[in-house]
Write a protein that binds this DNA or RNA. Structure first.
Length: 468
DNA sequence: ATGTTC
């Protein structure tokens, strides 16, 4: 049995690089020894590293152990208080992560949305306001991920009559997983100076060009459905009633993912935090890296928007219809906003929808449950935010292990939803009840309308397709 | 989320 990092911590190793070095040495030179012997090998090195700096096998570990301890930035003993919406249905892991985020010295305020669940660093559904600092993992990996809806002057009956045609349109005009368009459409975004001025971004341009207009995987989708406008007073001058609409959810593809990775690495290098907070490493906005990240993040957000617009443009051409209204909002991003006193704060919304006063947004449910068009109420305690969906109830792993294709197909059939692609990890049962989630955020947003999916396309999964 | 696991 090989030793693990935890075994080493048990004999006094501090979490960090030394553990990795020790495990490497074990694998390389002492793999055949019993674990007791392996442990007794390391104990003297830990006690007196100086005696081992010239050791033929253990010197690397000794040198690492002799390094002065990292200049770790201390967390506050107690965190600032923050509001939680829908606390009953939020897992402990997300609460713990939020509590840690509230102890950062740069944190000024926070809030947890009702769809919250555990993520990397800041929980998904976490909102964190900081002073002059941006946390790459507070934005998330899929920078600028967003919702976009186009409402058409088409009656629901037409959707039913033209189901096959609309399905074909989705198949031809959307790309999921690693698929991209053979002839990507050009877009003004490729003229942006960030593509030439930032080294990391320059390297990503070719792939961004290939991937524009594509949707990716995970919880991303493009779907036709029925919008029901419930409120006669709305920004779109739409009468109360039902309309066919197109809804898309996707982000900044490889561009954002690689920007996130690059600047997270830099942040974790320059901003050493205690183990439990290490993914919350920030970049000071006055530093070069901080300014670069801010520019790259904004580019990735605009790129995500461009992808949605191309999807909707292709579809509008197929439909030969002019949109009545378009609604768009992003949810993995950082914004410069003002607190109540007028001071600038950096608001990270990682899987949270901007919900400032009169700000419009879309909060999707699942593939077989409604989503909602909302108008923000601008509640200060929520830091002008709301949930970005129903939120996971079940991890992807658990969903794949426990949900059966037959169960999903039954739910889809009952809801009148046709599904192209997707895996069991995106099944409706893997998500919280959207109605309860909406109920938990009544003070945050006002519902203008609902959206019920009817023809849904997601990233394919062979196993699920086979049984289907 | 991600040519998915530096």
């Amino acid at each position: 049995m090989n030793l693990t990092g935890n075994d080493l911590i048990a004999i006094g190793f501090k979490p960090g690089k030394a553990i990795g070095i020790a495990l490497d040495i074990l694998a390389k030179d002492y793999a055949t020894q019993e674990s007791e012997k392996q442990l007794s090998l390391f104990k003297p090195v830990l006690e007196n590293p100086s005696a081992f700096i010239t050791h033929d096998k253990l010197s690397a570990l000794a040198i690492e152990l002799l390094k002065p301890l990292d200049n770790t930035i201390a967390l506050a003993d107690s965190g600032k208080s923050y509001e939680i919406y829908g606390a009953d249905a939020i897992e402990q892991g997300a609460l713990n992560q939020m509590a840690t985020a509230m102890r950062l010295p740069v944190t000024v305020a926070g809030a947890l949305m009702p769809d919250a669940h555990q993520g990397y660093g800041l929980p998904i559904g976490g909102v964190l306001a900081t002073k002059n600092a941006v946390i790459p993992y507070g934005v998330g990996v899929d920078i600028g991920c967003r919702m976009c809806m186009t409402i058409y002057d088409i009656a629901p009956a037409t959707l039913e009559a033209k189901r096959e045609e609309l399905k074909k349109m989705l198949m031809q005009n959307t790309m999921f997983g690693t698929a991209t368009f053979k002839k990507p459409k050009d877009h003004p975004i490729f003229e942006r100076k960030e593509f030439s001025e930032l080294n990391i971004v320059r390297e990503l341009k070719d792939r961004a060009w290939q991937q524009i207009g594509s949707s990716g995987g995970g919880n991303h989708f493009v779907e036709f459905g029925i919008v029901e406008i419930l409120n006669p007073i709305n920004e779109f001058n739409l009468q109360v009633g039902q309309y066919v609409a197109l809804l898309s959810h996707s982000g900044s593809r490889g561009l954002g993912a690689n920007i996130a990775r690059h600047y997270t690495d830099i942040a974790m290098d320059v901003c050493k935090l205690p183990q439990e907070a290490k993914h919350l490493a920030w970049l000071d906005l006055d530093t070069e890296a901080g300014q670069e990240y801010w520019m790259a993040m904004n580019l990735a957000g605009d790129y995500a928007s461009a992808c949605h617009h191309q999807i909707h443009e292709r579809m509008a051409i197929g439909l030969r219809e002019t949109p009545l209204a378009m609604i768009e909002n992003h949810h993995n991003f950082a914004w410069k906003e003002k607190d109540i006193l007028g001071n600038e704060i950096i608001v990270h919304r990682k899987g949270a929808t901007p919900a400032g006063k009169d700000v419009l947004g879309i909060i999707p449910g699942s593939m077989a449950t409604p989503g909602f068009i909302v108008r923000g109420k601008g509640l200060a305690a929520s830091i002008n935010s709301a949930s970005h969906g129903a939120g996971r109830q079940m991890s992807r792993t658990k969903a794949k292990q426990t949900i059966l294709p037959g169960q999903v197909n039954k739910v889809l059939k009952e809801a009148g939803v046709e599904l192209i692609g997707s895996g069991l990890d995106e099944a409706p049962m893997a998500y919280k009840n959207i109605h309860q989630v909406m109920d938990s955020q009544k003070d945050l947003v006002e519902v203008l309308g609902s959206f019920m999916p009817k023809i849904v396309r997601m990233c394919g999964d062979e196993k699920f397709q086979e049984v289907d």
